[in-house]
Design a protein around this nucleic acid. Structure first.
Lengths: 202, 202, 202, 202
DNA sequence: AATGAATGAGTCTTCATTCAT
DNA sequence: TATGAATGAAGACTCATTCAT
């Protein structure tokens, strides 16, 4: 029986999410290096020791934060792939969706664009592994575009993926560093236009 | 008298550069968080205390590292602007030049693309300020392209700059994380082509 | 009514012994400092909290372990005193019996000779109090030996007891530290001979 | 040049001994498990961090304490072996010397007989390695006694060593646990007599 | 200018014990 | 009785910076 209305998985217990959410807020407010476990515990309303009933160590909290939040981007993109028919439209909705998620959660934006990058190489490698799922979906869009004749045939998928992701990431980071003072989502059409022109046929 | 054959500027004393170079090596070899002041001093062949005769504190070393090394990119780009006549050519040579500098100094590549990003927000803000000079030159290329009719008129310069820099940065970082196993400079034409198509006229 | 076929004494309930036995195994396998209450509970097949229904605290478990296991040595020695007629024979059988008990229960040997000694001064004082019963029986052997003219009159009983117990203990500990690789019981005759010569008449 | 009037060895710097001596006092007064590094530093009159300029970690302090103090016993015994001609006399002076050292330094007595035994198995193994030097000298006494015809030929040296050391150790520990209320050195003749009778000829 | 010994603030993690169910 | 999730106190160690020489 795989689907039960109750669960013993740590991830499904309320305190798991409570701690994840607290971590996002504490990191966003205090910065990565000032996000002590005790601060996260306090924000989550639990004792320090309770953290360790749900996470192996501090790094595990941070990876889980990224994992949980990244899944929002991934699920978003999966939905887009199902609902759209054209690769160019998928690309547009991916950019727009990405910007929307960040715009709607300022704490999350700070954490993913600025703070989590201060982690050490080990953690960043793990984060990259999580990111891969998202990039794989982007690859699918590109493949479909080529197959359907929307995009030029001779583009290097790996490189194009880097151009698109690099652009989205840089635009997002700049927006966060400018303290989110302008409308990020409003930039989606322009970003899409530049990127699309770079790869589309004719 | 701006040019004197001797100087009392700290920057011109041999130990200043000795320490900067030591810092790059130590950070590349050990990672940002394992680059202790004492390690840098040892690598530079000076006493720990001597560091503080040339730098205010550890952050000051790191900013100076970025400043000194970034100037290579800036000078490179300034030369390109002088030697080229067409914006699209300038863009190509900027990309190629950027990749070349990183390819020729593996230590520098690791430090700028991976390790220095682990610094805290304050340091990153200062790094961004230094970066501005480079981005300003990129803006000049874009303005010239529009003026000369090479690039479409309605592009948002700030946004386009982010697309271009984001792409260069992402491609560079991916190359470093793949342990520099392939030829980065060889990717310049493809990167240029995609970016150019996104902004050029007709 | 001292003997009832049922009992409300904690010591007589099955879980009491279950926990004691679990503690010996956990301490022997993991070492004193790695013998957490939760590990003992798991080994005993009860919940952590249940431990505290049978023992006041962790120290109480450890004292009880020693008490329960020490009683084997004491009962053994009491039997010997009843069955033997000569003090020198009693001494021999005491040494042999002591070695036998340790040889037959490797877990117990590790716990009493190595692990329990890592306890703090308070616990060791309590352990010494328990040990007293055993040492009192040894005193009786010595007194009888003097009375019967087997042992020299002018020996200091307290000191002699320390010599005998110190020897048995050191030989046992060395054997455990050498990972019980040789036959401890086989050493009884030699140990007895040396000790006996030190105190016997003529 | 092996002998210089000055030295760069850590062991010869005044703070090394300062910390060792502080550790003995703190452990004796507070017990092994309450001997925090910060307490030792305070007692030694140095900063916490200074400890780590002279010792690798806390365990290293404790091993060094034992090493430095054990050397008193060893040097003592080496002197005895040189000055004495008869094995039985050597044995007497060894026992007496051992008791004297403990009697003259109450802190040391508590630390070696009680507190240091609470260390974990790893540390105890290292302590045993240090102890070996002392036991090797004891072996030499026994060998000489057999060779000279003072001791019976058929004794097992390893076992006899355990009897002698076990006795000295137990007598010392009992004295410490009785809070050193009686004269330990005064017990040397009786201890010597019992042990000697156990191994001497005729 | 140069040295390098000394400083001391700051934090993650474990685990015995409790108590609501 | 029995459970086990939650608690929270406590401590070794690092490293940027100073300052007497």
């Amino acid at each position: 029986m795989l689907n039960r209305w109750w669960s013993k998985l740590k991830k499904d217990k309320p305190k798991y999410r409570q701690i994840i959410d607290a971590a996002v807020i504490v990191i966003a407010d205090n910065g990565y290096h000032q996000a002590q476990v005790s601060k996260i515990a306090k924000q989550a309303g639990v004792a320090d020791g309770t953290i360790y009933l749900y996470f192996k160590n501090k790094e595990d909290i941070l990876i889980s934060v990224f994992q949980e939040k990244m899944s929002v981007f991934v699920e978003n993109l999966q939905k887009i792939l199902k609902e759209s028919t054209q690769a160019s439209e998928m690309l547009y909705r991916m950019i727009e969706g990405h910007f929307k998620v960040l715009s709607e959660d300022h704490h999350l934006a700070i954490v993913t664009q600025l703070e989590l990058r201060q982690s050490n190489k080990d953690l960043r490698l793990k984060i990259n592994a999580i990111l891969k799922e998202y990039l794989d979906l982007l690859d699918e869009i590109l493949k479909k575009g080529i197959q359907d004749g929307e995009f030029v045939e001779d583009i290097d998928i790996r490189l194009t993926r880097q151009v698109i992701f690099g652009t989205i990431d840089e635009v997002s980071t700049t927006w966060v560093m400018k303290e989110q003072k302008y409308d990020l989502v409003a930039m989606a059409p322009s970003v899409h236009q530049i990127l699309l022109k770079g790869i589309q046929r004719g």
